[in-house]
Design a protein around this nucleic acid. Sequence first.
DNA 1: CAGTATCCCAGCAGATACTG
DNA 2: CAGTATCTGCTGGGATACTG
Lengths: 146, 146
Amino acid sequence: MTGDRSQACDLGDAPFTPGQAKACTVREVLDRVGGKWSIGILVAASQGPVRFTELERFVEGISRRMLTLTLRNLERDGLLRRTVYPTVPPKVEYTATPIALELYESLVALTSWAERHRIAIAEARAAYDRAHGPVDPGPASVAGRA
Amino acid sequence: MTGDRSQACDLGDAPFTPGQAKACTVREVLDRVGGKWSIGILVAASQGPVRFTELERFVEGISRRMLTLTLRNLERDGLLRRTVYPTVPPKVEYTATPIALELYESLVALTSWAERHRIAIAEARAAYDRAHGPVDPGPASVAGRA
DNA sequence: CAGTATCCCAGCAGATACTG
DNA sequence: CAGTATCTGCTGGGATACTG
Protein backbone atom coordinates (compact mmCIF):
# COMPACT_ATOMS: atom_id res chain seq x y z
CA MET A 1 0.00 0.00 0.00
CA THR A 2 2.99 2.26 0.37
CA GLY A 3 3.78 2.37 -3.33
CA ASP A 4 1.60 3.62 -6.13
CA ARG A 5 0.59 0.44 -7.86
CA SER A 6 -2.14 2.20 -9.79
CA GLN A 7 0.36 3.76 -12.12
CA ALA A 8 -0.19 0.87 -14.49
CA CYS A 9 -3.29 2.61 -15.73
CA ASP A 10 -4.39 6.23 -15.79
CA LEU A 11 -8.11 5.72 -15.78
CA GLY A 12 -8.58 9.45 -15.39
CA ASP A 13 -10.33 10.72 -18.47
CA ALA A 14 -8.04 8.86 -20.78
CA PRO A 15 -9.70 7.38 -23.86
CA PHE A 16 -9.36 3.80 -22.77
CA THR A 17 -11.89 1.20 -23.76
CA PRO A 18 -14.67 1.15 -21.19
CA GLY A 19 -13.82 -2.36 -20.13
CA GLN A 20 -10.19 -1.63 -19.49
CA ALA A 21 -10.90 1.62 -17.71
CA LYS A 22 -13.44 -0.01 -15.44
CA ALA A 23 -11.08 -2.82 -14.67
CA CYS A 24 -8.43 -0.42 -13.51
CA THR A 25 -10.86 1.52 -11.36
CA VAL A 26 -12.07 -1.59 -9.67
CA ARG A 27 -8.49 -2.60 -9.18
CA GLU A 28 -7.91 0.61 -7.30
CA VAL A 29 -10.82 -0.19 -5.06
CA LEU A 30 -9.62 -3.67 -4.41
CA ASP A 31 -6.08 -2.51 -3.79
CA ARG A 32 -7.47 -0.18 -1.22
CA VAL A 33 -10.06 -2.47 0.27
CA GLY A 34 -8.61 -5.79 -0.75
CA GLY A 35 -6.53 -6.17 2.35
CA LYS A 36 -7.32 -9.17 4.44
CA TRP A 37 -8.95 -7.11 7.16
CA SER A 38 -10.19 -3.88 5.58
CA ILE A 39 -13.66 -5.19 4.97
CA GLY A 40 -14.14 -6.46 8.49
CA ILE A 41 -13.07 -3.14 9.93
CA LEU A 42 -15.22 -1.22 7.48
CA VAL A 43 -18.37 -3.14 8.24
CA ALA A 44 -17.71 -2.79 11.95
CA ALA A 45 -17.20 0.95 11.69
CA SER A 46 -20.25 1.27 9.48
CA GLN A 47 -22.43 0.34 12.44
CA GLY A 48 -21.18 3.36 14.37
CA PRO A 49 -18.01 4.64 16.05
CA VAL A 50 -15.81 1.86 17.34
CA ARG A 51 -12.79 1.75 19.61
CA PHE A 52 -9.55 -0.07 19.01
CA THR A 53 -10.26 -2.98 21.31
CA GLU A 54 -13.81 -3.28 20.07
CA LEU A 55 -12.45 -3.76 16.59
CA GLU A 56 -9.98 -6.28 17.87
CA ARG A 57 -12.86 -8.33 19.22
CA PHE A 58 -15.22 -7.75 16.32
CA VAL A 59 -12.88 -8.76 13.57
CA GLU A 60 -11.63 -11.62 15.68
CA GLY A 61 -8.47 -13.13 14.32
CA ILE A 62 -6.72 -9.91 13.46
CA SER A 63 -3.43 -9.11 15.12
CA ARG A 64 -2.68 -5.78 16.75
CA ARG A 65 -0.19 -5.02 14.08
CA MET A 66 -2.56 -5.57 11.19
CA LEU A 67 -5.36 -3.76 12.95
CA THR A 68 -3.16 -0.71 13.31
CA LEU A 69 -1.85 -0.88 9.78
CA THR A 70 -5.24 -1.34 8.19
CA LEU A 71 -6.72 1.39 10.33
CA ARG A 72 -3.98 3.77 9.23
CA ASN A 73 -4.53 3.02 5.57
CA LEU A 74 -8.27 3.44 5.87
CA GLU A 75 -7.76 6.70 7.70
CA ARG A 76 -5.28 7.88 5.12
CA ASP A 77 -7.73 7.23 2.33
CA GLY A 78 -10.41 9.17 4.13
CA LEU A 79 -12.55 6.13 4.79
CA LEU A 80 -12.25 6.35 8.54
CA ARG A 81 -11.96 9.31 10.86
CA ARG A 82 -9.80 8.85 13.93
CA THR A 83 -10.82 10.74 17.04
CA VAL A 84 -8.56 10.80 20.08
CA TYR A 85 -9.97 11.62 23.49
CA PRO A 86 -7.06 12.81 25.64
CA THR A 87 -8.36 11.10 28.74
CA VAL A 88 -6.23 9.35 31.28
CA PRO A 89 -6.83 5.91 29.85
CA PRO A 90 -6.47 6.78 26.18
CA LYS A 91 -9.63 6.51 24.16
CA VAL A 92 -9.70 6.46 20.38
CA GLU A 93 -12.75 6.15 18.21
CA TYR A 94 -12.91 5.26 14.55
CA THR A 95 -15.86 6.49 12.56
CA ALA A 96 -16.78 5.58 9.02
CA THR A 97 -16.96 8.57 6.71
CA PRO A 98 -19.86 9.02 4.29
CA ILE A 99 -17.61 7.72 1.55
CA ALA A 100 -16.98 4.54 3.49
CA LEU A 101 -20.69 4.14 4.13
CA GLU A 102 -21.29 4.29 0.41
CA LEU A 103 -18.61 1.72 -0.15
CA TYR A 104 -20.27 -0.47 2.41
CA GLU A 105 -23.43 -0.38 0.39
CA SER A 106 -21.54 -1.49 -2.69
CA LEU A 107 -19.97 -4.24 -0.66
CA VAL A 108 -23.41 -5.59 0.07
CA ALA A 109 -23.81 -6.37 -3.62
CA LEU A 110 -20.66 -8.45 -3.52
CA THR A 111 -21.83 -10.10 -0.33
CA SER A 112 -25.09 -11.19 -1.80
CA TRP A 113 -23.33 -12.51 -4.88
CA ALA A 114 -21.00 -14.57 -2.72
CA GLU A 115 -23.86 -15.87 -0.64
CA ARG A 116 -25.87 -16.82 -3.67
CA HIS A 117 -23.08 -18.74 -5.38
CA ARG A 118 -20.96 -19.96 -2.54
CA ILE A 119 -22.21 -23.51 -2.88
CA ALA A 120 -21.85 -23.56 -6.64
CA ILE A 121 -18.31 -22.27 -6.40
CA ALA A 122 -17.38 -24.83 -3.78
CA GLU A 123 -18.77 -27.57 -5.99
CA ALA A 124 -16.97 -26.25 -9.03
CA ARG A 125 -13.76 -26.31 -7.05
CA ALA A 126 -14.30 -29.83 -5.85
CA ALA A 127 -15.15 -31.01 -9.35
CA TYR A 128 -12.08 -29.34 -10.78
CA ASP A 129 -9.85 -30.86 -8.14
CA ARG A 130 -11.34 -34.26 -8.79
CA ALA A 131 -10.60 -33.97 -12.49
CA HIS A 132 -7.17 -32.37 -12.32
CA GLY A 133 -5.29 -33.54 -9.20
CA PRO A 134 -6.16 -32.32 -5.71
CA VAL A 135 -4.18 -29.02 -5.90
CA ASP A 136 -0.69 -28.80 -7.14
CA PRO A 137 1.96 -28.71 -4.46
CA GLY A 138 4.07 -25.68 -5.08
CA PRO A 139 7.83 -26.01 -5.20
CA ALA A 140 7.92 -24.38 -1.79
CA SER A 141 6.35 -27.37 -0.10
CA VAL A 142 8.88 -29.72 -1.62
CA ALA A 143 12.01 -27.97 -0.55
CA GLY A 144 11.86 -25.27 2.04
CA ARG A 145 14.82 -23.05 2.49
CA ALA A 146 15.05 -24.61 5.94
CA MET B 1 -4.70 -19.63 -3.72
CA THR B 2 -3.53 -23.16 -3.20
CA GLY B 3 -4.40 -23.21 0.47
CA ASP B 4 -7.82 -22.79 2.05
CA ARG B 5 -7.64 -19.37 3.58
CA SER B 6 -11.37 -19.27 4.16
CA GLN B 7 -11.11 -21.59 7.09
CA ALA B 8 -10.79 -18.56 9.35
CA CYS B 9 -14.55 -18.23 9.31
CA ASP B 10 -17.36 -20.69 8.72
CA LEU B 11 -19.98 -18.29 7.42
CA GLY B 12 -22.19 -21.22 6.49
CA ASP B 13 -25.33 -20.97 8.55
CA ALA B 14 -23.42 -20.37 11.70
CA PRO B 15 -24.99 -17.89 14.11
CA PHE B 16 -22.49 -15.15 13.53
CA THR B 17 -23.45 -11.54 13.89
CA PRO B 18 -24.64 -10.26 10.51
CA GLY B 19 -21.71 -7.91 10.25
CA GLN B 20 -19.13 -10.56 10.87
CA ALA B 21 -20.78 -13.07 8.59
CA LYS B 22 -21.00 -10.56 5.77
CA ALA B 23 -17.42 -9.59 6.28
CA CYS B 24 -16.27 -13.17 5.88
CA THR B 25 -18.38 -13.70 2.81
CA VAL B 26 -17.05 -10.63 1.15
CA ARG B 27 -13.58 -11.73 2.09
CA GLU B 28 -14.16 -14.95 0.21
CA VAL B 29 -15.13 -12.94 -2.82
CA LEU B 30 -12.11 -10.74 -2.55
CA ASP B 31 -9.81 -13.68 -1.95
CA ARG B 32 -11.16 -15.18 -5.12
CA VAL B 33 -11.37 -12.03 -7.15
CA GLY B 34 -8.88 -9.93 -5.26
CA GLY B 35 -5.94 -11.14 -7.27
CA LYS B 36 -4.11 -8.48 -9.14
CA TRP B 37 -5.47 -9.56 -12.49
CA SER B 38 -8.73 -11.41 -11.90
CA ILE B 39 -10.91 -8.37 -12.48
CA GLY B 40 -9.29 -7.46 -15.74
CA ILE B 41 -9.73 -10.96 -17.04
CA LEU B 42 -13.30 -11.14 -15.80
CA VAL B 43 -14.38 -7.92 -17.46
CA ALA B 44 -12.70 -9.00 -20.68
CA ALA B 45 -14.43 -12.36 -20.66
CA SER B 46 -17.72 -10.73 -19.80
CA GLN B 47 -17.79 -9.13 -23.22
CA GLY B 48 -17.75 -12.54 -24.88
CA PRO B 49 -15.44 -15.53 -25.40
CA VAL B 50 -11.79 -14.54 -25.47
CA ARG B 51 -8.62 -16.33 -26.43
CA PHE B 52 -5.40 -16.50 -24.47
CA THR B 53 -3.50 -13.96 -26.53
CA GLU B 54 -6.49 -11.66 -26.67
CA LEU B 55 -6.48 -11.57 -22.91
CA GLU B 56 -2.77 -10.96 -22.90
CA ARG B 57 -3.35 -7.85 -24.98
CA PHE B 58 -6.51 -6.74 -23.23
CA VAL B 59 -5.20 -6.83 -19.72
CA GLU B 60 -1.96 -5.36 -20.87
CA GLY B 61 0.76 -5.65 -18.30
CA ILE B 62 0.03 -9.19 -17.22
CA SER B 63 2.68 -11.85 -17.66
CA ARG B 64 2.03 -15.20 -19.25
CA ARG B 65 2.52 -16.89 -15.95
CA MET B 66 0.00 -14.78 -14.06
CA LEU B 67 -2.46 -14.98 -16.91
CA THR B 68 -2.32 -18.75 -16.80
CA LEU B 69 -2.54 -18.92 -13.03
CA THR B 70 -5.42 -16.51 -12.75
CA LEU B 71 -7.23 -18.23 -15.60
CA ARG B 72 -6.86 -21.57 -13.84
CA ASN B 73 -8.20 -20.24 -10.58
CA LEU B 74 -11.14 -18.60 -12.27
CA GLU B 75 -11.84 -21.80 -14.14
CA ARG B 76 -11.54 -23.84 -10.98
CA ASP B 77 -14.07 -21.65 -9.23
CA GLY B 78 -16.50 -22.03 -12.10
CA LEU B 79 -16.24 -18.41 -13.15
CA LEU B 80 -14.74 -19.20 -16.52
CA ARG B 81 -15.26 -22.10 -18.89
CA ARG B 82 -12.24 -23.22 -20.86
CA THR B 83 -12.90 -24.61 -24.32
CA VAL B 84 -10.11 -26.24 -26.30
CA TYR B 85 -10.36 -26.59 -30.05
CA PRO B 86 -8.01 -29.39 -31.09
CA THR B 87 -6.95 -27.61 -34.23
CA VAL B 88 -3.44 -27.59 -35.59
CA PRO B 89 -2.57 -24.24 -34.14
CA PRO B 90 -4.13 -24.73 -30.70
CA LYS B 91 -7.10 -22.56 -29.98
CA VAL B 92 -8.53 -22.03 -26.51
CA GLU B 93 -11.46 -19.87 -25.60
CA TYR B 94 -12.44 -18.62 -22.20
CA THR B 95 -16.07 -17.83 -21.59
CA ALA B 96 -17.59 -16.16 -18.57
CA THR B 97 -20.18 -18.30 -16.82
CA PRO B 98 -23.51 -16.84 -15.71
CA ILE B 99 -22.11 -16.64 -12.21
CA ALA B 100 -19.22 -14.54 -13.43
CA LEU B 101 -21.57 -12.29 -15.34
CA GLU B 102 -23.50 -11.66 -12.16
CA LEU B 103 -20.28 -10.89 -10.36
CA TYR B 104 -19.41 -8.47 -13.09
CA GLU B 105 -22.62 -6.61 -12.41
CA SER B 106 -21.74 -6.35 -8.75
CA LEU B 107 -18.33 -5.10 -9.71
CA VAL B 108 -19.97 -2.23 -11.53
CA ALA B 109 -21.22 -0.94 -8.18
CA LEU B 110 -17.67 -0.89 -6.88
CA THR B 111 -16.52 0.76 -10.06
CA SER B 112 -18.98 3.59 -9.77
CA TRP B 113 -18.03 4.10 -6.14
CA ALA B 114 -14.38 4.33 -7.08
CA GLU B 115 -15.10 6.72 -9.89
CA ARG B 116 -17.23 8.92 -7.70
CA HIS B 117 -14.71 9.22 -4.88
CA ARG B 118 -11.39 8.79 -6.60
CA ILE B 119 -10.56 12.48 -6.31
CA ALA B 120 -11.65 12.74 -2.70
CA ILE B 121 -9.58 9.72 -1.78
CA ALA B 122 -6.53 11.09 -3.56
CA GLU B 123 -6.93 14.37 -1.71
CA ALA B 124 -7.39 12.61 1.61
CA ARG B 125 -4.19 10.72 0.96
CA ALA B 126 -2.27 13.83 0.06
CA ALA B 127 -3.58 15.66 3.12
CA TYR B 128 -2.68 12.75 5.37
CA ASP B 129 0.81 12.53 3.93
CA ARG B 130 1.27 16.26 4.39
CA ALA B 131 0.29 16.03 8.03
CA HIS B 132 2.10 12.81 8.95
CA GLY B 133 5.32 12.28 6.97
CA PRO B 134 5.24 11.28 3.29
CA VAL B 135 4.75 7.53 3.88
CA ASP B 136 6.75 5.60 6.35
CA PRO B 137 9.73 3.78 4.93
CA GLY B 138 9.40 0.18 5.93
CA PRO B 139 12.32 -1.57 7.59
CA ALA B 140 12.84 -3.43 4.35
CA SER B 141 14.03 -0.32 2.56
CA VAL B 142 16.47 0.46 5.34
CA ALA B 143 18.18 -2.87 5.70
CA GLY B 144 17.73 -5.68 3.27
CA ARG B 145 18.56 -9.17 4.42
CA ALA B 146 21.69 -8.82 2.30
C1' DC C 1 -6.18 1.44 26.43
C1' DA C 2 -3.95 1.99 22.21
C1' DG C 3 -0.53 1.56 20.07
C1' DT C 4 5.03 0.54 18.29
C1' DA C 5 8.91 -2.24 17.11
C1' DT C 6 11.14 -6.35 15.53
C1' DC C 7 11.59 -10.84 13.55
C1' DC C 8 10.14 -14.04 10.22
C1' DC C 9 7.66 -16.77 6.87
C1' DA C 10 4.50 -17.72 2.95
C1' DG C 11 2.50 -16.57 -1.06
C1' DC C 12 1.77 -13.34 -4.94
C1' DA C 13 3.86 -11.81 -8.67
C1' DG C 14 7.73 -10.57 -12.29
C1' DA C 15 11.26 -12.18 -15.67
C1' DT C 16 12.93 -15.48 -18.48
C1' DA C 17 13.47 -19.79 -20.96
C1' DC C 18 11.54 -23.92 -22.83
C1' DT C 19 7.63 -26.96 -25.24
C1' DG C 20 3.52 -29.60 -27.40
C1' DC D 1 -0.93 -20.51 -30.15
C1' DA D 2 -1.09 -21.63 -25.54
C1' DG D 3 0.92 -22.88 -22.32
C1' DT D 4 4.76 -24.94 -18.46
C1' DA D 5 9.05 -24.62 -15.54
C1' DT D 6 12.30 -22.29 -12.71
C1' DC D 7 14.48 -18.72 -10.12
C1' DT D 8 13.90 -14.72 -7.49
C1' DG D 9 12.12 -10.69 -4.96
C1' DC D 10 8.68 -8.01 -2.59
C1' DT D 11 5.14 -7.27 0.44
C1' DG D 12 1.29 -8.84 3.22
C1' DG D 13 0.61 -10.75 7.31
C1' DG D 14 1.42 -13.54 11.92
C1' DA D 15 3.76 -13.80 16.63
C1' DT D 16 5.73 -11.63 20.20
C1' DA D 17 7.58 -8.09 23.21
C1' DC D 18 7.76 -3.41 24.64
C1' DT D 19 5.66 1.57 25.70
C1' DG D 20 3.18 6.20 26.58
